[in-house]
Design a binder for these strands. Structure first.
Lengths: 335, 335
DNA sequence: CTGTTAGCGCTTTCAG
DNA sequence: CTGAAAGCGCTAACAG
């Protein structure tokens, strides 16, 4: 089924069929009718690939994320898909598994496939990736972090400030010995930023982080939270509060405490980050930082679409999404 | 940057460049060298859209799911992506929001966009959708359910049998009054099947479901679990055990009980389905059915790839993925 | 308003 | 082994 057969069937030229299909130029009612009928009878569907080739626009936006089975990233994708849909675009989704090599490959593949734009939530951003990004000829938006020297819009939450707020909250509760369970410092950038916020807050109180109370685990999973807390509990003197880089780690941390019979928050208070669904499932309910991955995906895509429409932006624009401290039971009571 | 410029730069014809790029025919070392150098110097990337048009193969598989921020579907996507990647294919992801109208549109769009194949996890499958599916000219695999009369491979877990097993487990624990919190019966099919399994188990014991103990909520969210349990608690006589159609609903159910001071499992036992991460976060830990969305996505994609290779299958093949009862604290103790 | 024609960028015969 | 030429299916001038 090609446009040619439809044209033949309707007794017109392919150009006229194209005009009717795209409403690109006026066509007489009579021909329009015949063409529409032919389309209906044949069940003809225009080949979008051929169309893309001519129009130099695929209506596709490429999305690269480290993993998908993680509420943060699936929220992101949901936000992206939602806006893309409003703009009659579709998304090609690729998972990098945190492999910078694969991220670079994907950028090239997306370029070769003529994506209209790209949204990249990179795991880490090293020099190599930066170079690929610089040679990219299609517009892109970063999520979560932007490597130094790159001029592209970036959507992020203010991890540092938010982490500082949580930690300050703990200090306000009277805690003097505060630990942190963090992910790998080089990974996802947010890990590093959240650690810095923690350090800032301690600094404002005139303290510095105590190494035996800071557990930098290899990833951000629940299990890493368990390990992190176990590590911290081995210190001779224990902290009275622990801030975790994300909620799933906080859940792991609470489970580790539970299995040792240590009460939360009475003996050790715990705070998380992200306000995932898990935060209200766990007991005690988790004090955490709320922000919206959906909103991030949404804003990133809006920015991208604006760029595609030709609306410029200061090229090192940082689009911040809001956040807020949510105080629940895991840090309640005073110290 | 087109193949033409590379050819000019290397002083050869575009055909020869194409041969080198695709290793499709032998080319002399000398020309090969010159061409590779020209490619490197220009940073040329072949236009995949043009290539797809000729080869009638896009290397794209279309994926339609009802929502993404749900561990079941994100697991599915992860499995699909993983296998697609192994076959150097990519995925176009679209979210139907359970709207059958949108599902049909997406099928047409994917067909127009020349997807090599489609994987559809449909919300409900009514007559209209079936008609669209029947007129589809590209291979597709269904996940979760297949409407009657459709001849296409379908990957599913045996919801009915598994639900029967959980319920039988409850009966084995001595429960005589067993309720169920279910999602909408027409939605996602799994809702219906799980209810049927529950009914089967009761039937084997010689009972039938008591309407006041069966809450069919409007969706499968945590909040629906809360509402369902509240509804059931309004019955004059209360059940001693409640089976929930999914873990998030079970979590909601447990929270509803908790807020009324009803102890789980002593006063009311609760079981779920899916074995999400939440199942081990909640206290008491949830008895549930484990199965693997990842495996489903994976098997669906393998089947699709086999079809694309020309390997046929009995066209009404049902590919089952395993499941298993996981007994935890929420149903422990006897009645 | 309508048809003819020239490509989009690439692969693939078909001759050398 | 290499190049010229014919399209893939469609849109977009360009003439009528």
């Amino acid at each position: 089924m090609t446009i040619r057969e439809v044209a033949k069937r309707a007794g017109v030229s392919i150009a006229t069929v194209s005009r009717v299909l795209n409403r690109s130029k006026p066509v007489s009612e009579e021909l329009k009718r015949r063409i529409e009928q032919a389309v209906r009878e044949t069940g003809y569907l225009p080949n979008a690939v051929a169309r893309s080739m001519i129009q130099k626009r695929t209506g596709l936006i490429g999305v690269i994320i480290p993993e998908i089975a993680n509420p943060y990233f699936s929220g992101l994708v949901e936000g992206i898909e939602s806006v893309a849909h409003q703009h009659q675009s579709h998304i090609m989704l690729a998972v990098s598994r945190k492999d910078p090599r694969r991220e670079m490959d994907l950028l090239r593949i997306f370029q070769a496939r003529q994506m209209d734009g790209i949204i990249l939530a990179a795991a880490r951003v090293g020099g190599e990736l930066r170079r690929v990004l610089q040679s990219l000829t299609i517009p892109y938006v970063l999520i979560g972090q932007r490597p130094a020297g790159l001029r592209a819009p970036c959507v992020k939450v203010d991890n540092r400030r938010a982490a500082c707020e949580v930690t300050t909250h703990l200090i306000g509760k009277g805690h003097r010995r505060i630990g942190m369970i963090s992910g790998p410092m080089w990974d996802l950038a947010s890990g590093k930023e959240r650690y810095e916020g923690y350090r800032d807050a301690l600094g404002e109180a005139g303290w510095t982080p105590r190494p035996e109370w800071v557990a930098a685990e290899e990833s951000f999973r629940l299990q890493d939270g368990v390990k992190g807390m176990e590590r911290i509990l081995r210190a001779k003197e224990r902290p009275t509060a622990v801030f975790c880089a994300c909620d799933r780690m906080a859940v792991g941390a609470i489970q580790a405490l539970e299995s040792r019979g240590i009460r939360v928050p009475d003996q050790i208070a715990v705070a998380g980050f992200d306000d995932e669904e898990a935060a209200t499932m766990i007991r005690p309910r988790l004090t955490t930082v709320r922000h919206s991955p959906f909103e991030m995906g949404w804003k990133a895509t809006e920015r991208l679409m604006a760029t595609l429409r030709g609306e410029g932006s200061s090229p090192d624009e940082v689009i911040r999404v809001g956040h807020g401290l949510v105080v629940r039971d895991s840090t309640s009571g005073g110290k």
